[in-house]
Design a protein around this nucleic acid. Structure first.
Lengths: 185, 185
DNA sequence: AATTTATGTCAGTCATGTTGACATATATGC
DNA sequence: GCATATATGTCAACATGACTGACATAAATT
């Protein structure tokens, strides 16, 4: 049907556990756009693989506590911005109030997060991690920090700068990009 | 309760739609690890925001066709490796056969993907996009390619190199990293 | 001939997202 | 002070996409 597996190009890579040859990327014709297209597709895939692996380790730890990735995100950001409001969290996560509500409710019931009434604006419920929450946050973030630290160390400071610039460019809004300014103090 | 909103540091950023001051990151004490911790946390957040926005546009297009992100991943990778096997796809996505089965079944029923029996190994079902599938793939990938292209252009070639190196470092396995070798030909 | 591999399928469950409507307390503007 | 807007919470219903575990078939491999 196709000649994908007929090894016309390049040396046959040692057959993996998948059996047979590794599939080859589709060619987009010999057009001058080939390299550019290839480069952009690689970026797409880098994002996919990196994100998949980046979330893999925490997911295991969370599963042991009957929590999911959604809980992780909440714990992470509440740990990051102690005393943050529910609105602010919604704005970061870009999910509905309903979705957050369930997750947040569980985290409070289980004692990972505490709510305090705002002083200036008493409608606000300021979110903070409890001891237990901080402990879990450290555990989860530690795996991700290690992964990033390893990648940063291997790639070097210049690469880190480039990584940061490209990632900022991928983000849609100025508002979100602004979260990365003036942080070193 | 806390003094998070009391604006002790820095100039007050113009209050956003969220009302009130922007929450400030938690300090980790004046330890010498501060910068490193901050740097690593920023990476964690860059991954979160970038991935969230990266998948946002395709999600809208998919929703119009009653498809989800899972369908996108399948369509993308089948388009990338025409004639790929089910096993290979499972290996990339790292999900269960069951999860893939449902999504793949829908895509075939809806006429986005075709299955052909392998010639050498007739147990294999080689996956290929149909015309309709290719059309959707182009539409979806186009939004992501544009996003990446914009980011790459803004950041410059050196940054792109760094981005790539860091992302490769974040990926867990040599097997997956190997997917990025020898592609330019 | 026995075993392994590639694929498919059944049944049930869970996590996490969605919409839309409605309720309450508090803050703010006129 | 009253009207309106905002911050938050809550109810019901639903869709998607993951999961587990078991079992079935055809073809390849040993």
């Amino acid at each position: 049907m196709t000649d994908i597996n007929s090894s016309k190009r390049g040396s046959p890579l040692s057959s993996s556990s998948l059996g047979g040859d590794r599939p080859r990327p589709a060619k987009t014709g010999g057009s001058p756009l080939f390299l550019r297209d290839e480069e952009l597709r690689q970026a797409i895939e880098l994002l996919f693989y990196a994100y998949r692996d980046f979330t893999g380790e925490p997911d295991v730890i969370l599963a042991q506590r009957d929590l999911g990735r959604a809980h992780h995100r909440v714990i992470y950001f509440v740990g990051r911005y102690p005393g943050m409001t529910v609105s602010y969290l919604l704005d970061i996560l870009k999910i509905t109030k309903q979705s957050l509500s369930r997750v947040l409710g569980q985290l409070m019931t289980e004692g990972y997060i505490r709510q305090d009434q705002g002083q200036e604006d008493r409608r606000q419920r300021l979110l903070t991690l409890t001891e237990k929450g901080e402990e879990l946050e450290r555990l989860l973030t530690e795996t991700q920090r290690k992964r990033i630290a390893r990648a940063y160390r291997a790639a070097g400071p210049e690469a880190v700068e480039g990584f940061r610039d490209v990632m900022l460019g991928i983000i849609s809004s100025d508002e979100d990009r602004a979260r990365f300014e003036n942080r070193g103090e």
